[in-house]
């Protein structure tokens, strides 16, 4: 089998903890990611799930090298990018895309949607035919063309999210990290986006890391799943195996907490064992 697009070995990321910064001198570092190992095969969609605050977005930022790892290595497309300086990363950026978790703040308030989608195209030498490319990008995510001239505050939450998706995919990257990109979309729009990702993965060899809390979507979309908690991978396996035979207690808890769309009066009751003694 071909070499994977990403190989991540013993990846650690530490960030300064500003809340414990002494008056003079540097803030102490806290380790957010505590040694992760995994591969992302080319053209695959890998789900990343886990507790809120477990480090999924931080992992995403490290993969696209918005953050520099403190230890370990990241190999992308056969090249070690762990400590590449910003200038050498720039030519790779086109292929290292990330769609951010918070759609509002990831769009510049002073730019129109058209200019937000066009900027990375221009910067990466895809500036010809800009109008047509922008139009196509909007159309792919199901946004009307009239949105090109709007500003971010004139869109709904889900529409903003789709602008972020359009912007990243317009570059036809090799890799995209999708951080919680469908939780703000109604199910039929979700279907459209997921179909688009599946198609790009199958036809263009796009590799996707798909961070999501929606395990039903994960099961539908992803071939393999990584479960994270407190900065470590607690379980990683093929999707069906994970859902059918979860190995770890945390994974079982997660699956048990999925709300299925059916009435169940007792669902919210706290199981007797977990009740705190009064």
């Amino acid at each position: 089998m071909a070499e994977p697009l990403f190989s991540v070995r013993r990846l650690k990321v530490a960030l300064p903890d500003m809340t414990r910064k002494p008056l003079i001198g540097r803030a102490p570092l806290v380790e957010i990611l505590k040694g992760l190992d995994f591969d992302l095969p080319r053209g695959s969609v890998t789900g990343i799930v886990g507790e809120s605050g477990s480090g999924k977005s931080t992992l995403g930022r490290a993969l696209v090298r918005l953050l520099e790892p403190s230890a370990g290595s990241i190999t992308f497309d056969g090249r070690d990018i762990t400590h590449l300086p910003e200038a050498e990363l720039r030519p790779l950026r086109r292929n290292l895309q990330m769609i951010f978790q918070d759609p509002m703040s990831s769009l510049n308030p002073r730019r129109t949607i058209a200019s937000i989608i066009a900027a990375p195209l221009k910067q990466n030498g895809l500036g010809d035919n800009l109008k047509a490319r922008v139009a196509e990008a909007l159309q792919r995510v199901g946004l009307p063309q009239s949105f090109a001239s709007r500003y971010r505050h004139e869109l709904s939450g889900g529409q903003r999210q789709r602008v972020g998706i359009a912007r990243a995919l317009a570059l036809s990257p090799k890799f995209v990290l999708a951080d919680e990109i469908v939780s703000g979309l109604d199910v039929s729009t979700q279907a459209q986006i997921l179909t688009l990702l599946e198609k790009l993965a199958a036809e263009m060899g796009l590799t996707v890391a798909f961070i999501s809390h929606d395990l039903s979507v994960i099961r539908r979309l992803c071939r393999q799943v990584i479960v994270m908690r407190e900065g470590v991978i607690v379980e990683a396996s093929a999707t069906d195996a994970l859902f059918d035979k979860p190995q770890q207690a945390y994974t079982r808890d997660l699956i048990a907490a999925i709300p299925l769309p059916e009435i169940d009066a007792g669902w919210l009751d706290i199981p007797a064992a977990a009740k705190a003694p009064t």
């Binding site: 199910v187 039929s188 979700q190 997921l194 039903s216 994960i218 099961r219 539908r220 009435i263």
Partner: peptide, 30 residues
């Protein structure tokens, strides 16, 4: 509503809602 959705749009939403127990039956456009 869950027992008997009346409007066709509601029915479409219900049908499209993904369930991890049966992932491929769901997630289709209206």
């Amino acid at each position: 509503l869950f027992a008997a959705p009346q409007h066709p749009y509601t029915r479409a939403l219900m049908a499209a809602t993904p369930r991890y127990t049966d992932p491929f039956a769901s997630l289709k456009p209206v």
